[in-house]
Design a protein around this nucleic acid. Structure first.
Lengths: 352, 352
DNA sequence: CTGTTAGCGCTTTCAT
DNA sequence: ATGAAAGCGCTAACAG
């Protein structure tokens, strides 16, 4: 038999004050005498009080304003899942009155990012959820927020030289390391490896694919593997050129046994292999976008890595809400699970 | 801007009745005139009313009794996770007054199972969560429950010829299929495969490892793979004999390239390989038991499959509670995700 | 059969 | 600065 739940009323009685005073202490609302505060805090140390957030929400009048800024959302892609997760948290905490403003920017256009961040800084808000892309711009944004003591949480990745409440992301280094392990485990050996990594023009700073590439390289090094690695040319901005680029690549390199795609566009390679009836090249990709899932189901992709974007968004919003209401301490580093999906498991997959 | 949440009070006003009557209709409590019921039901069709279970729970006086019966729980093993998941659901729904009785049986002793099920049938209860092992006994138990109209939910596996409210389990066939795919993808080829599958003495009926074996066999067949498969002798009841049995096996079969363990005792093989410095045999196992996780981290196990037992337990209890309170329709078939874990991903793994 | 009312744990408001 | 009381959405108990 576990002991009876303790309520505010119980604390009030134990401390010899009223429930109103306990509430004021719990939420640091002020207007409490030194002596009353001490009495309550003493009781709080002794009992295990856990407020019920759903009941709190029921009587909470305050409206919280939260700004969400991420790269533009496309249907069936990575960032959409992050937003879905955020929405799920809002649904779960339906009793809490939160107003969300969503401000997205073009992740391939640094000016769009600057513009958006500038706008955001004009808007009064209680907190932010940030999906960062450009390092310098993000550091600028957060330094301004720090000045105003506005809390923020990162999703997708952490940015150095910032001090977020928390971040929820996968470990990109480990992810690249894993992808290399998987492709080398299943491809015929010895043979060459193709790697696809889009480099953001005009932004050489560390981003997620660079971290993944580090992991990839280190796996080869650690295991003393001598496969040659060739970078696959590829253009995000002029997609119509990609077919020719790929064609060129495969004519130049005839002993490719496996390919790793370090960004979410794995389906481009999958489509090429499918169209050209290439069956002896193993393919490991990342992110459960609609086209990637389709390619996985047809087994053009052998392993697909999931970063749990929905969970990232969910946890970010949940953490934020709980912080805003109770100001409880928060763990800063939060790495999400890396899911390995295959044709067999994808149908049963569900982030929650 | 999403539209305002609808409350019982709103429904009452729209239907021209009191909140009490709406509540009576919603919960089928009777004592409602035909006309009042119709009026309320008409409104319910038009609006999207979603009760808040946490608030419901707050005023609910009824105490629900739920019996949980599973194989005996050992620390760090599969069934413990199922119980952990059940407990998590109870924590999340802390406002609901549920009383759990746990009755476990020895999964290797059919008499223990019979005894336990007999006891259970004497106890009045609102519902059960059943982790089945012996087919006939389970069918007997559930047929008695059916007579009394007591609802039950399965975890771990479904039993044919029963009519549960729902079941939460992995797809064991797919699981075996996947394990075969993984081991053949990473082992040197051609070579032989060792397979470990404990057969329960005196119980030849379909159980989870048999389903997995079917999946395993079918993968080989579908892919027209000609690896020879040898069954590894192994004793659950006399574990001290296993070392000799394994030693025998590996002396008899010198070209084993991969091993699949269809039950949760993969660590036994892992330990043997470790102790004898065997590094060229790939190992694919199931269940995130403490020893299996340890073996995975040391890379004696190459792939470990997770069946999400915690989620199974959580979903079972959550579903049951919601059913008991709202009698809402429930999806019967619920296959949990099959997680593929490696040394790299295990540290980030968390079922929730 | 039905409406009214009290009360669940919590926050807010309003006197004091 | 503090306690008392009202109210959030829901269910239970009661009076008619």
């Amino acid at each position: 038999m576990r002991k009876k739940k303790i309520r505010i009323k119980d604390i009030a009685k134990l401390a010899g004050v009223s429930t109103g005073t306990v509430d004021r202490v719990l939420h640091n609302r002020g207007n409490v005498s030194e002596s009353a505060r001490k009495a309550v805090e003493k009781v709080l140390e002794q009992v295990d009080y856990k407020p019920n957030i759903h009941i709190s929400g029921m009587s909470l009048k305050k409206k919280y304003h939260i700004i969400i800024t991420t790269p533009t959302v496309s249907k069936g892609e990575y960032w959409e899942s992050i937003h879905t997760g955020i929405q799920r948290a809002l649904d779960e905490y339906e009793n809490i009155n939160v107003n969300c403003l969503i401000h997205t920017y073009n992740q391939y256009d640094i000016y769009s990012c600057r513009e958006t961040f500038k706008e955001i800084l004009e808007i009064p808000t209680d907190a932010l959820i940030i999906g960062p892309t450009f390092k310098k711009e993000t550091i600028y944004l957060t330094s301004e927020l720090d000045k105003k003591s506005i809390p923020y949480i990162f999703v997708d990745s952490m940015v150095e030289q910032t001090s977020p409440l928390a971040f929820f992301s996968s470990n990109h280094y480990t992810c690249g390391y894993l992808m290399c392990k998987l492709v080398t485990a299943i491809m015929r050996n010895p043979s060459d490896i193709g790697i696809l990594q889009a480099v953001r023009i005009g932004d050489k700073s560390a981003n997620t694919t660079i971290l993944r590439k580090n992991g990839f390289d280190n796996y080869l090094k650690e295991k003393k593997l001598t496969n040659r690695v060739y970078r696959i040319p590829f253009s995000v901005l002029e997609p119509e050129k990609n077919d020719d680029l790929l064609s060129d690549f495969f004519h130049k390199h005839t002993d490719i046994g496996g390919i790793v795609v370090l960004n979410s566009r794995g389906n481009l390679i999958a489509n090429y292999l499918a169209k050209n009836n290439i069956n002896d090249i193993k393919l490991v990709c990342i992110d459960l976008t609609t086209p990637n899932i389709k390619a996985l189901k047809k087994e053009y992709i052998d392993f697909l890595i999931g970063q749990n974007p929905e969970r990232q968004g969910f946890m970010a919003m949940k953490t934020l809400i709980e912080f805003l209401i109770y100001r409880n301490p928060i763990q800063v580093e939060n790495y999400m699970p890396l899911d390995i999906l295959t044709k067999e498991t994808i149908d049963y997959y569900q982030e929650f």
